[in-house]
Design a binder for these strands. Structure first.
Length: 354
DNA sequence: TAGAGAGGATCGAGGGCACT
DNA sequence: AGTGCCCTCGATCCTCTCTA
């Protein structure tokens, strides 16, 4: 029953001639709505721009831009009649349109009609409908800059936001529930205890680890609220310490940060560096300049292998990342507490002296 | 003239639902 | 219970346009 689409452009026999197979009078049983809207639906030809109508009437194919304009107008009209346009409706409308102006709208490759001849228009209508229906606000709540006084008045309502999901390698990005043995109060106490322990250099690492692990829920709440680095540093000082950082990373991703990094450095470091310095140097002028700069600086630094430094910086450059958002430069004489935290980016950075 | 941003297109996963 | 179809959603890519 495919392909038997009568191309009768007559308006006098609406819907019957076009809709394939079961025209089971629109299954949507929602009361009050015009369930017959699709049968009565008139293509808003008169609303099309003159340029489109010129093309259609002259049997010419409207260009992509014009075609999109046309699709937009039709979809607006359809969605006014019925906010939940289904595939069947899009198909009917597309079929009607193609039936009226086959030489302008039909899917044809080298003279052959492709499939029904209107599939591409159906898809275009469907895509437009879907894109219209998508909310303009991003579903994933990204960290956004939060000034201290503004108490997030523009929070996206929960129901408009898709379920939070684990992504970018995270397995516990957003923890929904407190551990059963924990309460808000116990979390707060542990957080305070950690702050105190940070002041004492002789803190028991095992205890720190344990406390960091059991407060992971609250840590994620704080991070995902988009609080500033300055604020987070005061609340969770151990994050900025190798131990606390690795506990958090382990919980978040299920990966042992240091072990994985050093293992991969041994395993893939050489190959990556080779690739960067042979193939990627041809990638762009910018990359080549960065590479040359790093070459000049070789041997001037101490403490860390030049290869590792070069690899990290070349990776940054390769992915067009701003070095400034990774490293924040301060004067040689600058003490840790003198760093202007207001000027530091929202995301974590390495503060470099000199 | 390159880069950013908007809008369109596409893909895969997953859920709902009707039908068998 | 299995199957097929449709819909929605997240993610991402592509294309076009605007702007610095």
């Amino acid at each position: 029953s495919l392909s038997s689409v009568e191309a009768s452009p007559t308006q006098s026999l609406p819907s019957l001639s076009v809709s394939p197979q079961s025209s089971s009078s629109s299954s949507s049983s929602s009361p009050g709505l015009d369930t017959q809207w699709d049968v009565n639906f008139e293509i808003p030809w008169s609303k099309f721009p003159e340029e489109v109508m010129q093309a259609l009437e002259r049997g010419k194919r409207p260009g992509p831009k014009l075609r999109r304009q046309m699709v937009r107008i039709v979809v607006t009209e359809m969605m006014q009649k019925c906010p939940h346009v289904g595939k069947k409706h899009s198909t009917d409308v597309a079929a009607k349109m193609v039936a009226k102006y086959p030489s302008s709208l039909q899917d044809v490759i080298e003279g052959d009609i492709v499939g029904t001849g209107y599939h591409s228009l159906v898809k275009q209508l469907q895509n437009r409908i879907e894109n219209v229906r998508r909310t303009s606000t991003p579903k994933i709540r990204k960290r956004k800059h939060q000034t201290d006084d503004s108490d997030q008045t523009d929070e996206i309502p929960l129901e408009e936001r898709a379920a939070m999901q684990d992504t970018y390698g995270c397995i516990k990005w957003n923890v929904k529930f407190l551990p059963l043995e924990e309460t808000q109060e116990s979390q707060k106490q542990k957080m305070e205890k950690l702050k105190v322990m940070f002041q004492h250099s002789d803190a028991n690492p095992e205890e720190v680890k344990c406390l960091m692990k059991s407060t992971f829920y609250t840590q994620r709440q704080h991070v995902n609220q988009g609080k500033s680095i300055k604020c987070l540093r005061e609340e969770w000082p151990f994050w900025f310490d190798e131990l606390g950082m690795s506990v958090h990373f382990m919980e978040l991703t299920g990966i042992d940060l240091k072990e994985t990094f050093t293992r991969n450095l041994d395993l893939k470091g050489k190959r990556l560096l080779d690739y960067m310095t042979t193939v990627c140097v041809n990638k762009s002028k910018k990359f080549l300049q960065n590479y040359a700069r790093l070459q000049r600086m070789r041997g001037q630094r101490s403490g860390c292998s030049d290869d590792v430094i070069e690899m990290i910086l070349l990776l940054l450059s390769y992915f067009d990342e701003e070095e400034e958002s990774m490293f924040f430069h301060v004067e040689d004489t600058c003490l840790a507490e003198e760093v202007q935290l207001e000027q530091v980016p929202l995301t974590p950075v390495v503060i470099v002296c000199g």
